[in-house]
Amino acid sequence: MTATRKLELVCPAGALPSLKAAVDNGADWVYFGLRDDTNARNFAGLNFDSRSAREGIRYAHDRDVKTVLAINTFPQAGAWERWERAIDAAADLGVDAVILADPGLMRYAARKYPDLGLQLSVQGSATNHEAINLYRDHFGVRRAVLPRVLSIRQVEQVIRNTDVEIEVFGFGSLCVMVEGRCALSSFATGQSPNTFGACSPASAVRWEPRGDRMDVRLNGILIDRYAADENAGYPTLCKGRFDVGGETYYAIEEPSSLNALELLPQLAAMGVAAIKIEGRQRSPAYVADVTRIWRAAIDECSANAPRFSARPQWKAGLTRLTEGQQVTLGAYNRKWK
């Protein structure tokens, strides 16, 4: 553990304009995916083909920003070649690293491209140092992204027991389930993050105006029902209102966003290597704003951690980006659990 290491900022790019926005506004790394089910944001109209990937990587590298290709779904039996090709493409494109979840794919990458940096995706569900060190020992994983389930003390325990760099989520949509261990989406729709690279896929969504209310369904299953004065949100199925024991409420999680900005000095002090911003499905303007704010915060924290406090204008800027949703520290704050 080296507390003096420079804390890096890892930003999302769903398309070339977002990648440029991240680079221009101070990202240390940008992460992106290819246009298929090899990545966990397999949404229509999103992601990169080889031409845009090449251009994006050149743009980043010319400005000393590193690139990582997310190939973070599980290769499905019978379609293995598609994931192999994604690894081959990563090596050919010259990204600095790939971020993977599947051990079989890690083995392929480690054997064929020993110089390609390997990172462990949050989809790999590694919440403890033994799991992380297994991937290090077998495949040479250099960095691991922690699922959004650990308290800040538990993050510290992990860091103390591994020399693998630890990356944590700082901002964006919040998965309340352990990433890589949630089949709710396939239960309802047939497609899940693990099998298809998407949760609550748009193709299964139906909006049904019913007089002055709006019903939102996922493959016919009612996820929520909004009154006229409520904002109807996207029906991510763990963020709907359901009936449990005669009460109707957000039984699993409110539609809230993670914002760990105020924890920055603690995260830096305990030796977190990088902060990840969620949001490859977001607009270039969103990526630009969130990157700029976090860049400023990290720089200020590095310069003077003991006196760091999140500036009101940063907080206001980030709150604006969450579109009125609640903001939470998630599992970092033990009480949330």
């Binding site: 389930v149 650990l150 309340v176 389930m177 352990v178 261990r181 949630c182 089949a183 709710l184 239960f187 763990c238 449990v244 024991g245 009460e247 039984a251 699993i252 999680e253 599992a331 033990r334 009480k335 949330w336 659990k337």
Partner: peptide, 21 residues
């Protein structure tokens, strides 16, 4: 019943407005 998902949060405790601890 299918074990579909795991979380750090306890949804039973949440139902009763209790914290996991």
């Amino acid at each position: 019943r299918l074990p579909l998902a795991f979380s750090a949060r306890c949804f039973t405790a949440r139902h009763y407005n209790l914290s996991k601890d």
